[in-house]
Amino acid sequence: MSDLYFGTELFSELDRLQRQMSTLFGGFPSSLRSSRLGTFPPINIGATDDTIEIVAFAPGIDATKLDISIDKGLLTIAGERTSSLRHSAESRRAYAQERFAGSFRRAVELPQHADPDKVQARYVDGCLLISIGKREASKPRAITVE
């Protein structure tokens, strides 16, 4: 029998520490140019055989004031969201304010096979949908055997 005894308090403390560390370090971005959690607008990125699809969740924005650009493999989304409150700031007392208002800029590093000449963007129901075509050389193709 061992002289060491670890009570259940130690294991519950280790579990608590592990949960805290997961919360603290679990939200790191997958790319160095990605941003931390809570950044506006939040985005989803996916791909098909022909395109890279990016959805930016940006409700309450005038689509004509969005600035989308691609430069050196970096997609940048910039714009401004105005406050939804109609009262002047002087006469209003906010008890809680969770909705972001102000200017924003979000940059996403694109894969090398993204073709910056094949970009389409549309704003539908508060979502900015960006579709970027892939270069022809990177698309899957069948090869016939002779």
Rank of each mutant, 00 (worst) to 15 (best):
S34C: 05
I132F: 02
S31N: 12
F11E: 10
N44T: 14
I132V: 08
V119G: 01
Y95R: 10
G27I: 08
A89W: 10
E80D: 07
F100I: 06
E146A: 15
S22M: 07
F40Q: 02
Q120V: 12
K134R: 15
S103D: 11
R19C: 03
L37D: 06
Y95N: 08
I54A: 01
M1Q: 11
G60C: 02
I77K: 07
G133M: 01
G7V: 10
D67C: 04
R36N: 12
R122V: 11
V145I: 13
T8M: 11
S2W: 06
P59S: 08
D115G: 01
S84A: 10
A96I: 15
G133V: 02
L24W: 12
S30Y: 06
A107C: 04
V119E: 03
P111H: 12
I143D: 12
E146S: 15
L14P: 00
A137V: 00
A101P: 00
S12L: 09
S138Y: 07
S138C: 03
A47Y: 04
L24Q: 13
T76I: 03
A78P: 05
T23V: 05
I43K: 04
R16C: 05
T144S: 15
V55H: 14
P42D: 08
A63N: 05
G7R: 01
G27W: 08
V124M: 09
S88T: 00
L17F: 07
M1E: 10
A137K: 04
E136G: 00
R81S: 02
E109S: 10
D67K: 15
R36Q: 12
D115K: 00
M1C: 04
I54M: 01
L10W: 14
E109K: 07
A96L: 14
E53Q: 10
G102D: 03
K72V: 06
L66H: 06
S30E: 09
R93H: 13
P111M: 09
V108I: 15
Q97N: 14
I45A: 01
A58S: 13
E136V: 11
G38S: 04
V55F: 14
R106A: 03
S12F: 06
T144P: 12
G46A: 14
L10N: 05
Y95M: 09
S83Q: 06
L17I: 11
I77G: 03
P29K: 00
A107V: 02
S30W: 04
T51S: 03
S31G: 07
G133P: 01
L37F: 10
T48A: 00
R81G: 01
T23C: 05
T8H: 15
H87D: 08
S138A: 14
F6N: 11
I70V: 11
D125E: 13
A58E: 04
Q112E: 14
G133D: 02
I45D: 00
S35P: 01
I132M: 02
V108Q: 12
L75R: 03
G60I: 06
K118H: 06
C127T: 03
I43F: 12
T82W: 05
